[in-house]
Design a protein around this nucleic acid. Structure first.
Lengths: 359, 359
DNA sequence: TTGTATGCGTTATCAT
DNA sequence: ATGATAACGCATACAA
């Protein structure tokens, strides 16, 4: 525990040594050369058992712990996998993280969690930091802006990472056509709302609200597109006043829906861009005495925990977040031949969606 | 980008160099000494502006990125904070992680997420790995076993971490009397069920089920203790047949409650050890046509998202998970004078608990 | 089987 | 203001 400076420090130049015991200390204590200690650590068979025992004893006695950073410098160490996310909130995040950990921990990699809080400057800063740490890969997790400046940023990130041999993986974001070498794992957001909206149309609904539209994120854009196309193919005109923006979280969604009801807008169904949007809508509807699904049908997206415990249970789209993380992790540690994956989603039909009343 | 081996490699001994450009490459390119480049990087003022410009230009041209691992070897680099958790599931985990990130990222620390899956061997393995990485601190997050072997393990961990100068922080776990030097951030599990059970008693309930008892985790133990004491102080005898084990997740809790109902056990209220236990109970009760709260009152613990959106909304105990993480992070980067904190919880009274029927 | 020497990329010290 | 050099802790090629 105590670290008697072991006297092998002649000059005063260079950095001061750490207070931890190092390989040389062990070597001196076991009266062997540092190389032999190294061999014992790396389980090199060409060490006499007797010698190994003595070294192991010294290691134990001195509380020796290999310095992984020094080891990494020789290219031998384990590397980090950076998990860059806007915020660590929501169950989807935890699911993706679990998947990543699942596929990367086996190979001795560590997952470093970093939050950008939606700040591009911070994002770049963290990315550089992980380059400095010589991360094996950086995962950009979750929906990201679709503006041109993001592609520019991505281009810059890609170059930066390439210069230190790190893999860039987009996780929950589609392939960027301009950057085909950047790996990506996406899921079928478009198909999700396509099928949930089709489901509502099939039940006889015609005036369907899209709750939580946003034009600056891939996820929201694709989900809106699915909604639009479902209406189109059924020959229903898309009423722009039924496409409601700014309803991302529960509170916002509730407020927006309250305004819609106050304005007297007519509709018989709601497609929430996320479950949170659907729940917010339900809160507002219920407060006004609107019955679900008798008066209005509601569907969500994500199938976060407890959606089936609502009354009525929420019809929603389940995305394989765990699997997404797992695949992203696999691409991170060993990018294969196909760098781009898109996973299917599945409509979970429950009680919150029912046949439209004959109006 | 391409890395022409820069000729300064005379012997063939030692490790091969990385393919990344290093400080020496920059020095050669800018025709200065490595020391000068280092000075530019560390923004040492004693560099002629003209020289600095030349160096910066070379750095940009060669795509130079400092090697954080090498820097760490001199004691200058940022360190990691290990976040060891059983599983990255549940909203509580995300909240705690957010708090940790909040308080540690400012000082340039990175949070490394590691999952033990409840395996002690794996836990030790990961702990050693983080010692090797010279982590600044290791956070043991979430409820942990209360058996004696755990204290032994903790003792071992503590020694191991001390030998590399890392701080050990228990997060969501009480101080271990045998190890007062190990930092801890806990919250009032005991007080939570004490007040929720008192609340039920105050409403006239006498036969109250504790759903999800476990005797091997601090969290579960303390919550059960709060329940017991609330009954004691009200002069109500604790009926052991109302203390139901093995109802940790929703499915288990539902099955257990179903058995209880099938057996015809009489009770008018349920204290869930977690919200999941409460929700499982509600599912089973509802399937049998039992009305909540008219026939049976139900309370939970944690206040995970959407508990207020259930019908009826769930009475539960809110714990400040975010704050717990934040404090744990603070203890991790700079352990202050008081190493042990216990945060209060707050009862959220909603619709799932109501007056007992006169029986 | 073991020891010696050297290099990984950076920073700090001393000398100029 | 800049350069030469030694250290941080470990791993490996080569010699013995």
């Amino acid at each position: 525990m105590t670290n008697s400076t072991t006297g092998h420090r002649e000059g005063t130049r260079g950095p001061a040594r750490f207070s931890t015991t190092n390989l040389r200390d062990v070597a001196l204590h076991a009266r062997v050369s540092p190389a032999t200690v190294s061999r014992v650590i790396s389980e090199n068979p060409s060490v006499r058992p007797e010698t190994r025992e003595r070294v192991l004893a010294s290691m134990a006695e001195l509380n020796y712990v290999v310095n992984g950073l020094a080891r990494s410098m020789t290219g031998r160490g384990s590397r980090a996998i950076a998990f860059l996310v806007n915020n660590m909130v929501g169950p989807t995040f935890a699911e993706i993280a679990t998947g990543v950990e699942e596929s990367t921990s086996a190979s001795g990699n560590r997952v470093t969690m970093l939050t950008t809080h939606g700040d591009p400057d911070r994002e770049l800063e963290l990315l550089i930091q992980m380059c400095e740490q010589r991360a094996a890969a950086v995962l950009l997790v979750g929906a990201t802006p679709t503006d041109a400046s993001f592609t520019d940023r991505l281009h810059r990130y890609s170059e930066l990472l390439a210069s230190v041999g790190a893999q860039l993986v987009l996780c929950g974001r589609p392939e960027d056509p301009a950057l085909p070498d950047v790996a990506s794992v996406y899921y079928d957001n478009y198909g999700g709302t396509l099928s949930s909206t089709r489901h509502l149309i099939h039940l006889g609904h015609r005036r369907i609200i899209f709750h939580g539209a946003a034009t600056n994120h891939t996820t929201a854009e694709d989900r809106l597109r699915g909604y639009r196309d479902a209406l189109h193919e059924a020959g229903i005109e898309v009423a722009e006043d039924l496409i409601i923006p700014d309803a991302f979280n529960v509170r916002e969604a509730q407020e927006r829906m309250d305004n819609i009801l106050a304005a007297g807008t007519k509709f018989s169904a709601v497609v929430g861009v996320r479950d949170e949007a659907a729940v917010g809508a339900i809160r507002a509807l219920r407060k006004r005495g609107v019955s679900i699904p008798d008066d209005v049908s509601v569907v969500g997206f994500d199938d976060v925990p407890f959606m089936e415990d609502l009354t009525p249970s929420l019809t929603t789209v389940r995305a394989p977040y765990r699997q997404i993380g797992k695949l992203a992790g696999e691409l991170a540690v060993a990018a294969g031949s196909d760098l781009h994956k898109v996973l299917p989603v599945e409509l979970q039909i429950r009680e919150s969606s029912a046949e439209a009343r004959i109006s």
